[in-house]
């Protein structure tokens, strides 16, 4: 127990918690926007891979860091456009299309990587985002290094939660997006285009997922390698459910997840970890995600028209 307490009281632990949560926040917000509009986006895992690759590749070939983020976002939106076109106006199965997008996006990123670097065995590193300490605040004990000595992308992730929350719940646009996911017929009756709202939500959401992926290569690992997203996209889908489709609660979920993940990494190096296979620790994030889904299952707050295609003039 003493060892766990020692970990929980270290500043580096809390800094890691926030760092692990950051990419998940971007992608979770992206998925949340899609689902609020009524579209389940299972392309998330592959779109994150594409974002990770596009951002890294831009910087590797001489582009600026923010250009990399922008390119990643545009690449994500492109796949979002494909996903949206197939699932919204054509109303195809969101499960099948989403998984197809994940396969297509992942394979495209790997193909492009192999094409650009045919014979590389150790992935090249880039000069990534550096921590940007916020004056005075970063001096605070424990919270300082955790919250105020992170890279700009982390600050952006937290700001994003506020923006998404504001737009969804305080603006007419947000109301229209939410209505598209709850009662699309009512939206159409108001003279608004359900198709446009859903397409827009899927594209913006996919862009954010790609930025989440780009965080991995541009603010965490500083290089691109295969299998690096490693199920984070699926975990974000669980986080949306855990957060009951509310941005604030989803943020809480991502931070909680970051805590458990940072804790399991550190526990591996303690006496507890010495007696246990490391795979048990690596399993924890996935087990916890399933547990979270089970615990939250009783709350019926799913957008009513999630996964229900809308076809104008049909009733």
């Amino acid at each position: 127990m003493g060892e766990i307490l020692e970990i929980l009281l270290s500043a580096s632990f809390w800094a890691a918690v926030i760092r692990i949560a950051s990419p998940l926040i971007f992608a979770t917000m992206g998925e949340l926007i899609c689902e609020r509009a009524g579209v389940l986006n299972l392309g998330i895992e592959g779109i994150m891979v594409v974002g990770a690759f596009a951002g890294w590749m831009t910087v590797y070939s001489g582009g600026g860091l923010w250009t990399g983020v922008l390119v990643a976002m545009l690449a994500g939106m492109l796949f979002g456009l494909l996903h949206g076109t197939l699932t919204v106006p054509f109303g195809l199965s969101q499960h099948v299309v989403g998984l197809g997008i994940t396969l297509l996006a992942t394979a495209s990123a790997y193909f492009a990587y192999r094409l650009a670097l045919p014979r590389v065995t150790t992935p090249p590193r880039i000069e990534a985002f550096q921590p940007l300490p916020i004056p005075i605040l970063s001096e605070l004990p424990l919270i300082g290094p955790a919250l105020f000595n992170q890279t700009p992308l982390t600050y952006l992730a937290f700001a994003l939660v506020g923006v998404v929350s504001f737009v969804l719940f305080r603006t007419p646009l947000g109301l229209a997006i939410r209505a598209a996911g709850e009662n699309p017929a009512a939206v159409a009756a108001q003279g608004l285009s359900v198709t446009a709202l859903r397409m827009g939500a899927v594209m913006v959401g996919s862009g954010l997922m790609a930025v989440g992926g780009a965080f991995l290569t541009m603010s965490a690992f500083n290089s691109f390698f295969f299998e690096m997203v490693n199920g984070r996209g699926w975990i974000c889908i669980a986080l949306v459910v855990f957060g009951a489709w509310m941005p604030g609660k989803a943020l809480l979920g991502a931070v909680l997840f970051g805590m458990f993940d940072a804790l399991q990494i550190r526990l591996q190096q303690t006496s507890i970890g010495a007696d246990m296979p490391y795979q048990i620790f690596l399993m924890m994030p996935f087990v916890l995600s399933i547990l979270a889904l089970v615990i939250m299952s009783r709350r019926a707050s799913v957008p009513a028209a999630l996964m229900v295609p809308f076809n104008k003039g049909e009733r």
Binding site: I237, P277, F286
Partner: peptide, 27 residues
């Protein structure tokens, strides 16, 4: 059972199980 008894979406649970199983085999 999680789907039929508690309404937990099976897409996510079956996906997450893939990772758990692979780690279990590795162990």
């Amino acid at each position: 059972l999680l789907k039929t008894k508690l309404g937990v979406d099976e897409v996510v649970t079956t996906l997450l199980f893939n990772f758990i199983m692979l780690l279990f085999i590795s162990m």
